[in-house]
Design a protein around this nucleic acid. Structure first.
Length: 112
DNA sequence: CGTGTGACTAGGA
DNA sequence: ATCCTAGCCACAC
């Protein structure tokens, strides 16, 4: 495999994000072994479109800001989805980010 | 194979 | 704390 492999790996990680939790692009990239390809992770999410099992709304930037909300249908679908999971969002930013942050490195047992 | 682009991030002013 | 800059990597053309 080749090209799609990276995207598929991204999806596999995103799919494992628990309900009500979120993570960052950089963390996902790090899990994949390429911490510098965080931008590409977001790029991959564009194609995630085809995979409804990928909870793209649970992926935000490292500050807990919904940078990708503009890529969702409507104007604040991403925010609505997160709020429906119990997230507290204000000004496009997750207020309880630290509490709901899900670190794939820890949770997947890849670290420590 | 070179160039441009982006749902990012870290570091410096 | 906020704003700006440069580096990154995978992909489309």
């Amino acid at each position: 495999m080749s090209t799609n492999d990276f995207y598929l790996r991204v999806y596999e990680v995103v799919k494992q994000i628990p309900y009500g939790r979120v993570t960052s692009y950089g963390s996902i990239a790090k899990v994949l072994g390429t911490p510098r390809s965080s931008r590409t992770v977001g790029y991959a999410m564009n194609a995630a479109h085809n995979d409804p099992e990928v909870p793209a709304h649970r992926v935000v930037n490292r500050n807990g800001v919904l940078t990708g909300k503009h890529h969702f249908p409507g104007t604040n679908l991403m925010q609505q989805l997160l709020e429906s999971e119990g997230q507290i969002i204000e000004e496009d930013q997750i207020k309880n980010f630290k509490e709901t942050y899900w670190d794939p490195l820890e949770e997947l047992g890849l670290q420590e």
